[in-house]
Design a protein around this nucleic acid. Structure first.
Length: 469
RNA sequence: GCCCCCAUCGUCUAGUGGCCUAGGACACCACCCUCUCAAGGUGGCGGCACGGGUUCGAAUCCCGUUGGGGGUGCCA
């Protein structure tokens, strides 16, 4: 029987899914997909104190959103405590574990006194401490020899067993800790590939020694991914860095842009084509090609990827995606309809859509102060231009972009905003008209915008602005 | 302190001994295009941390230094 490659993502519900976790999922998922293996989820909720069940929901929801599905139902460690305590009992019976009644303070005090490395010193190893309400079960780490493992990304890693301290297996509350639950489950679930963050490298020898002590004969393939860092090159942390996937979703990032960008953190396609669909990345991705150095999570580049993915959308798909970000619902959607294509190529984030078409919804239009100053106060011949535009547009019989353009051009000529050849200078002439009607100096092309605005509102706004001058 | 890991433009990367006077992308700057803003086009800025080896030849291999990171929890 040949076993299928099996990958897993094992988050603990103590925080929202963040981009680092998402990248770990992605790399697991990508490799699993490529080799035709399975990708499963295991919720590591062993710490009943910090566990926040509702966060599991967020993690699952974000994975769905990113399009990184999993096989089968997630496993919950909180429902498998029996397996862990059984393993712990075995270790205790075999003399590979012992009860310890030291408090954290005592451990620290002794470490300080002896001046050596902090951490547990094996104080209770042979004290014959009985199980009590304040005792934790510790693993008796091997004193000699060394433990090594092969890592797809880092090569061979070896550590001396004597540097492995006697870590806790069972808390005094009786709940199992990470390492114990981890190895028991990985073996039980027949995980063949352990792909996780670099922060787990140091724990791996402990994990392996534990497995040996348990007689598991279990050796998965490891791949420790480089961590994602902030601008100060520290590991991304939910606490100090704003990196939850949910936030990016809320800001109007597209999931395809997100996974595309994340795939390029620690890996790059040989052909150099960065912006591409996930399906292509699945074909090209190789876990062994992943870099071993930390990568900076650059929001600027993410934004650039998002712009590309937004523009690559068919226009009705773009409208569908933008819909949840339109706070004013149908009104906004109807307003956007005629300008959708023009808006699409101007936004980086979906949250930028509504501000761009707000002038079609707000009545009266909200005028941006800086824009007003720039176009009306500092701009050339604003009053004259508005007068001329009003006159020209008022005479228009058909209200469509091309005709509106001709009228504005005629107005420009009338007030002398022309170049050496006597041609209208729209770059100068459009300013006052744009600000009067849309409230801003920037936005979708003016004439299409005015067509969408309608004759009456356009003229009314021009007259209102003129009156203010 | 101890253990482990890492080191190519500001950032993400390509590069696995000669194809490299190091390629691409983001960012930045300039110009072009242009009704604003985008988009697009062209060009520019900018890097193999340092020192020793090995080799005919090193960004690529080895050693050291320096710098950075991760771990060192009754968190995961």
């Amino acid at each position: 029987m040949t076993s299928v490659p099996r990958f897993r993502f094992a988050p603990s519900p103590t925080g929202y899914l963040h981009v680092g976790g998402a990248r770990t999922v992605l790399f697991n998922w990508l490799e699993a997909r490529r080799v035709g293996g399975e990708f499963v989820l295991r919720i590591e909720d062993t710490d009943t104190e910090r566990n926040r069940p509702e966060l599991t929901e967020n993690i699952l929801e974000m994975l769905q959103w990113l399009g990184l599905g999993w096989d089968g139902e997630p496993t919950y460690q909180s429902q498998r405590f029996d397996s862990y305590t059984a393993a712990a009992d075995r270790l205790l019976a075999d003399g590979r574990a012992y009860w310890c009644d030291c408090t954290a303070e005592e451990v620290q005090a002794r470490a300080k006194e002896r001046g050596g490395p902090p951490g547990y010193d094996g104080h209770c190893r042979d004290r014959g401490v009985e199980r009590g309400t304040t005792t934790a079960l510790r693993f008796r780490s091997p004193d000699e020899g060394s433990t090594g493992f092969d890592d797809l990304i880092r090569g061979h890693v070896v550590v001396e067993n004597k540097t492995l301290e006697d870590f806790v297996l069972l808390r005094s509350s009786g709940t199992p800790t990470f390492l114990l639950a981890n190895i028991v489950d990985d073996a039980d679930m027949a995980i063949t590939h352990v792909v996780r963050g670099e922060e787990h490298v140091n724990g791996t020898p402990k994990y392996l020694c534990l497995g040996d002590a348990l007689g598991l004969d279990y050796r998965p393939v490891f791949a420790h991914l480089p961590v994602l860092v902030n601008e100060k090159r520290q590991k991304l942390s939910k606490r100090r860095d704003s990196v939850s996937v949910q936030e990016f979703k809320d800001q109007g990032y597209l999931p395809e842009a997100m996974v595309n960008y994340l795939a390029l953190l620690g890996w790059g396609p040989k052909d150099g084509v960065e912006v591409r669909p996930l399906a292509e990345i699945v074909e090209l991705f190789r876990l062994e090609d992943v870099t071993s150095s930390p990568a900076f999570f650059d929001v600027k580049k993410l934004q650039a990827f998002n712009s590309d993915h937004v523009r690559a959308l068919p226009v009705d798909e773009f409208v569908d995606r933008a819909r949840p970000f339109l706070s004013r619902g149908d009104i906004a959607e109807q307003a956007m309809a005629p300008l959708a294509e023009l808006v699409q190529e101007r936004v980086r984030l979906l949250t930028e859509v509504e501000p761009m078409i707000a002038f079609l919804i707000d009545d009266p239009v909200v005028i941006d102060d800086d824009s007003w100053t720039k176009a009306m106060v500092k701009g050339k011949a604003a009053p004259e231009m508005l007068d001329a535009a009003i006159a020209a547009l008022d005479e228009l019989t058909a209200w469509e972009a091309a005709g509106i353009r001709l009228a504005v051009e005629a107005a420009a000529v009338a007030v002398g905003l022309v170049n050496a050849e006597g041609q209208p200078q729209l770059s100068k002439a459009q300013g006052p008209v744009r600000v009067a009607t849309t409230g801003r100096t920037v936005g979708p092309p003016l004439f299409e915008s005015l067509e969408a605005l309608g004759r009456d509102r356009t003229l009314a706004r021009l007259r209102e602005a003129r009156a203010r001058l």
